[in-house]
Write a protein that binds this DNA or RNA. Structure first.
Lengths: 142, 142
DNA sequence: GTAAACCTTGGAGCCGGGTCCAAGGTCAAG
DNA sequence: CTTGACCTTGGACCCGGCTCCAAGGTTTAC
């Protein structure tokens, strides 16, 4: 194993951004938000990332697609970084988020039904003269 | 018909807020946002609302519960206020929003499935040593 | 040697839908 | 007359997740 220059090649922030399809601004934002650790710097101050950062970012992106909030993801990463397997807390988080999702799904489904009923009723609803204060949707009451 | 003092009784902003279960701040916000017209003022400058404002606010609340954005609601109200029956544009809006909802529902359902699968897989997934860069969820790739 | 392309920083701005505040005016009850 | 509840204004602030900017330093390509 060659001693120094360990990794295949270190990435600058723009390369990292390109590698995962995001922007340098977003990466800096994640760093500020504590999602990724401050990377090493080149002598001139440039951020210099280990290629493993790609994994970390892809994990963040995956978790984001799963609907986790950045704060949740930060929690998971923090747990992982301590050396504890994050699976248990992750399951906790996931179960909670699934429950949230179910609530949301129920709400949206009800909404959809209502809106469809409304939209169907509209064309036939005989629209009274534009009397202020009256309107077609049977919004409140009966 | 009694000439003046027409309405049963005019409402002050706090009364209006109480009547529909919101805050005076929200009502002022709606006014700024163009959802409700600037009301008459008492000689001392207090807002003085026609009771019809209750209908308008309840309509706004109903439309909001239906998932319309304030800007959409403003459009509807603006159309209505010109004397044109808003049913057609309303149907347009509704159909569009329903399509949006369907998209969102599909997304969330897929998400739910994925998250459930993940959560179910977690407890059995044998967690490898806390090697940085690795993690349980089969997020990317296979 | 010089220009282009990269990097650095901190801070502001954006979306939506409000919420909160301070300083001051007004009104009704006792 | 005083107290307290209400009202006025405009502006700042909040959440989340970025995005954009300006002014300056560095590295790379020709």
């Amino acid at each position: 194993m060659s001693s120094s220059t360990a990794a295949l090649h270190r990435l600058r922030v723009g390369e990292l951004a390109d590698a995962v399809g995001t922007s340098t601004d977003t990466i800096r934002y994640y760093e500020r938000a504590g999602l990724i650790p401050p990377p090493e710097r080149t002598p001139s101050g440039y951020r210099s990332y280990d290629p493993a950062a790609i994994d970390r970012l892809q994990f963040i992106q995956g978790a984001q697609r799963l609907g986790l909030r950045l704060s949740d993801i930060a929690d998971l990463l923090a747990i992982r970084d301590t050396g504890t397997c994050p699976c248990e807390p992750a399951e906790e988080l996931l179960r909670r988020r699934i429950a949230d999702l179910d609530t949301e799904l129920a709400r949206l489904t009800a909404l959809r039904d209502q809106m469809t009923a409304m939209a169907d009723a509209l064309p036939s609803a005989d629209c009274p003269p534009p009397r202020p204060g009256t309107w077609c949707p049977p919004s409140e009451g009966r």
